[in-house]
């Protein structure tokens, strides 16, 4: 094993497929007049989401960030929104992003995200475009039935008989027992989100996107992340995720443009970090200033390129489509 670790994890068929998919993505957006951009991987601010861990690096200088801790981006979302606020129009980026603490069959701590923003689109119109792109990229390799859209609530009702917006921790725990989902030690008794995540990952996700693109949309308000809330009973986050053959491929939002609301969410996430004993992250003031200046009405999505390449190549793990996955990096 030691002696062959210098060799790539992926074969050259897979590496050629990656190159081909990248070329087709660029052609797709060129035809639609979406501008390719590049934004920095290193930032003075970082994501506050307690479930995402940024790599921190120290910059010794010279220049204005001398002696600072800088963070490798977990997605290019914040600087791309600054471009949108500055008037870029619709943009896309193929970015290498970094997430600490994520490795496995479907995770590698650095990976490639295709992220794009469409000015004037709502999240449903963006789902149409995600369908167009993924259908085109998977043509000939993965047979696809008609795409499906399923609300988060409908998915929980279909696979668990539960209403995710109303169920209590006790009801969610009973649902886990009913469907033989092993309950981890130390689950909270006052927060339903980790329970929803447990049921989603163990019971629902493996059944989503069987031979078709399935969009899960309209998330609980507590899981809106950077999406707008749509008022209602209950209000829902205008967020979607794309699944194919049980694998999550993309996450999208109708983008939140309210700087005050965004600041409140950042602060709430940092408070959650404190409660969990995690370090607080520096809030991106540039993003908040850009939102205050005015973000055009838009929807954006991040698609895991390596996972898409894995499905297109008919492989079972990311390591088979990465030239050098973590264990060979």
């Amino acid at each position: 094993m030691e002696s062959t670790c210098w060799r790539p994890g992926a074969d050259f068929i897979a590496l050629r497929l990656r190159a081909d998919l990248l070329a087709r993505i660029r052609a797709f957006f060129a035809e639609r007049g979406v501008l390719e951009v590049e934004t920095p991987a290193l930032s003075a601010a970082a994501i506050t989401d307690p479930n995402l861990a940024s790599f921190a690096v120290s910059y010794t200088g010279p220049g204005p960030r001398h002696g600072w801790t800088l963070y490798l981006h977990t997605s290019p979302e914040f600087p791309m929104k600054r471009l949108l606020a500055a008037g870029s129009g619709s943009i896309y980026q193929i970015a290498r992003v970094f997430r600490d603490g994520e490795a496995g069959r479907l995770h590698n701590p650095e990976f490639t995200l295709l992220e794009w923003y469409r000015v004037g689109f709502d999240h449903h119109r963006l789902m149409d475009e995600v369908t167009d792109l993924t259908t085109e990229l998977l043509a000939g390799s993965v047979p696809l039935a008609e795409p499906e859209r399923l609300s988060y609530r409908a998915a929980f009702q279909r696979y668990l008989g539960l209403d995710p917006h109303r169920a209590t921790v006790a009801e969610l725990a009973a649902g886990a027992e009913r469907f033989a989902v092993p309950i981890p030690p130390g689950m909270p008794t006052n927060d339903t989100d980790p329970w929803l995540d447990l049921l989603l990952t163990h019971r629902i996700e493996p059944r989503l996107g069987a031979g078709r693109l399935t969009f899960l949309h309209d998330y609980p308000a507590s899981q809106a992340a950077l999406a707008r809330l749509r008022p209602g009973d209950p209000p829902v986050g205008e967020r979607f995720e794309l699944y194919l053959n049980g694998i999550e491929l993309a996450n999208g939002f109708r983008e939140l443009g309210d700087a005050g609301e965004q600041r409140r969410r950042f602060e709430a996430e940092n408070a959650a970090r404190r409660a969990l004993g995690l370090p607080e992250m520096p809030v991106d003031e540039h993003l908040l200033a850009a939102l205050a200046a005015g973000l055009p009405d838009c929807a954006g999505v991040a698609l895991g390129f390596d996972r898409l390449a894995m499905l297109a190549a008919g492989k079972k793990s990311l390591g088979e489509v990465l030239a050098f996955p973590l264990d060979r990096a």
Partner: peptide, 14 residues
């Protein structure tokens, strides 16, 4: 050992 994580949210080891 399998690492599973929803798009956003709590990660688990199955």
């Amino acid at each position: 050992n399998e690492f599973v994580k929803p798009g956003k949210g709590q990660a688990f080891n199955r």
